[in-house]
């Protein structure tokens, strides 16, 4: 069962969508601005082309507006948007019939008709939020975090590479993770609970 925060989010989103249904373009703009960047990045992972990804998501938002009266949200607006983006990307890939290996692989990973799991896009959303957080870190702090996290360098190696003391590396790492945790603090508890429950 999703915890309270999640429910509240869904409830206000339902109200928002109710306004969309009543032809409120301002409300629709709000939905669009909240989800557009994330959905594009999600689509990009599937279609591997930025322009195509953006086109697919824009098409989706046009279609939703046209069909706003008919759409029934069975779960959250977020699930709906991610699910629809996912399906449209698959349809696009299938349509391509371009037999490049990576696309065959992508298709193989996601069987058609298989509904996208909430877990999958929630994890994706988390990753996006972390990535945005990392982007906002001060440059040196970000660099040190990346060296430690992705290149697997020890603090000592990072210190040598950057010509700073191990203590500074340690301090910068602490700073990076503290900032990230602070930025995600409203989001993480609910998400973790959700991911644990499903």
């Amino acid at each position: 069962m999703p915890p309270n925060g999640q429910e509240y989010g869904q409830e206000s989103e339902r109200q928002l969508f109710e306004r969309v249904r009543q032809n409120d373009q301002k409300a629709y703009e709000q939905v669009f601005r909240t989800y557009y960047p994330m959905l594009c990045n999600y689509a990009l992972r599937l279609v591997k082309n930025q322009e195509t990804a953006e086109e697919i998501v824009q098409d989706l938002f046009c279609t939703i507006w046209e069909k706003r009266q008919q759409i029934q949200l069975s779960s959250s607006l977020k699930s709906y948007l991610f699910g629809a983006t996912h399906n449209n990307c698959l349809r696009y890939l299938k349509h391509q019939k371009v037999r490049q290996n990576y696309q065959v692989e992508t298709l193989a990973q996601f069987k058609e008709g298989e509904p996208v799991q909430d877990e999958e896009f929630l994890t994706f959303e988390l990753q996006q939020k972390i990535a945005e957080g990392i982007n906002r870190l001060p440059a040196q702090c970000r660099k040190i975090f990346q060296l430690s996290r992705y290149e697997g360098l020890k603090y000592k190696e990072i210190a040598q590479k950057a010509g700073i003391s191990v203590k500074t590396v340690e301090a910068q790492m602490s700073k990076a993770l503290r900032i990230l945790r602070e930025e995600l603090k409203d989001y993480l508890p609910t998400l973790l609970l959700f991911l644990l429950f499903f």
């Binding site: 990045n41 990535a131 982007n135």
Partner: peptide
Amino acid sequence: NAPESTVN
């Protein structure tokens, strides 16, 4: 979950 690729 820190993704290697940056956000586009």
